[in-house]
Nucleic acid binder design. Structure first.
Length: 320
RNA sequence: GGCCAGAUAGCUCAGUCGGUAGAGCAAGGGAUUGAAAAUCCCUGUGUCCACAGUUCGAUUCUGUGUCUGGCCA
């Protein structure tokens, strides 16, 4: 917020936008115009062996424009916003040290938020405890656990709908692990002081229907390029299951259901495309009320050169 | 050509013993702190195929037509 500070801190570019909006193409184009290195901000790209369905840049593109924080985790492993914050800060520092500009590009808005605002000091997930609470919920229903939460953490409970399974679970987990209410720990959170100056950009499609068409075409392209073979390889391992964050990813979840015989091929395609549209909608909801955002309109047909020039203009107005 | 079954929300269908209708999915809006490509909340007016008849009143009953599917020729 301090003007003097703003001048001295090194700039870092944030490039956000819904899925299938052309973020990757734009990020790669920017690396050819500016001395910047890409850090991926995407909860699905972190996984190894999940390339086609996650729309990961192909090998040739990665050769040209390396991405950090992709393909470093096995799909059996969980990842988290807190872990991302830690990893991203490390990568940003590394790139700044080498005298270049970090370019954070991706569609996981919570990760961007946590990077900007920091995160409360909370215990990590406890799989055994989660399993136990999930069993309890299956028996008594989430409203019953919400009831229980109200007794130990009325502030959190008041903010949560009785059906909000995931967040009721987390609040109960934190309390069980620390003996302190989640809401109390969150109130103790210190505001993050960033060692850099974020320039926040968002690629915003001006036509939802056009974005829907791009999503459909991209899904069909993924199928042609061997998406099902990729999922079959994961399926054949035998140790992965649909409750894992990796396998819950858009497209993979539906492909899994198809391989398990729960969906026909046509149903899988329709459900996969719909899930992608819904993801884009949620990403746009984040972006619509995002503070300090420079929006880059994305018109159909997508003109990469034009969009790149518009982006460079915004960046230069912000000291790059 | 004959017989039978359908025709209701973008899709699949339910329903109205005659008082103009509702689920799932899709879609739209919102929330979002160690699963976030996750999870959760809110939003349902549509010539109830068309025309005629019966009726105070028809999407509902009757008749005719049209279209779709099945069976028989």
């Amino acid at each position: 917020m301090l003007a003097a500070n703003t001048k001295t801190l090194p700039p870092v570019i944030f490039l956000m936008g819904p899925t299938a909006s052309g973020k990757t193409d734009l990020a790669v184009a920017l690396t050819e115009k500016l001395p910047c290195d890409i850090i991926s901000v995407d909860s699905a790209l972190v996984y190894r062996g999940m390339d086609i369905g996650s729309a990961k840049p192909d090998a040739a593109t990665l050769q040209r424009a390396p991405h950090r924080l992709i393909s470093f985790l096995d799909p059996s492993e969980p990842y988290s916003a807190a872990q991302f914050r830690c990893d991203a800060l490390r990568e940003i520092e590394y790139i700044l040290h080498s005298g270049r500009i970090p370019l954070l590009a991706g569609g996981t808005m919570l990760y961007f938020k946590v990077l900007l605002e920091g995160i409360a000091d909370l215990p990590a997930a406890d799989p055994a405890l989660r399993a136990q609470l999930t069993t309890e919920a299956a028996q008594y229903g989430w409203p019953a656990l919400h009831q229980k939460l109200a007794e130990v953490d009325p502030v959190s409970a008041a903010q949560l709908h009785p059906n909000h399974s995931q967040r009721i679970l987390r609040a109960l987990e934190v309390h069980a692990l620390t003996g302190i209410a989640l809401s109390t720990l969150q109130q103790q959170q210190q505001p993050a002081s960033l060692p850099f100056r974020p320039i926040q950009l968002a690629l915003m499609p001006d036509d939802r229907e056009a974005l829907h068409r791009r999503i459909e075409q991209r899904f069909d392209r993924m199928l042609r390029e061997g998406f099902m073979d990729e999922v079959r390889r994961l399926y054949a391992r035998g140790d992965l299951h649909p409750d894992l964050p990796a396998i819950r990813a858009v497209g993979y979840r539906q492909a899994w259901d198809y391989l398990a015989g729960n969906l026909s091929e046509a149903e899988m395609r329709a459900a996969g495309i719909a899930a992608t549209r819904q993801l884009a909608k949620r990403q746009l909801t984040w972006l619509r009320n995002w503070p300090q955002l420079h929006t880059i309109p994305m018109q159909e047909p997508f003109d990469l050169e034009k969009v790149t020039l518009a982006t460079l203009k915004i960046l230069s107005a912000n000291g790059i």
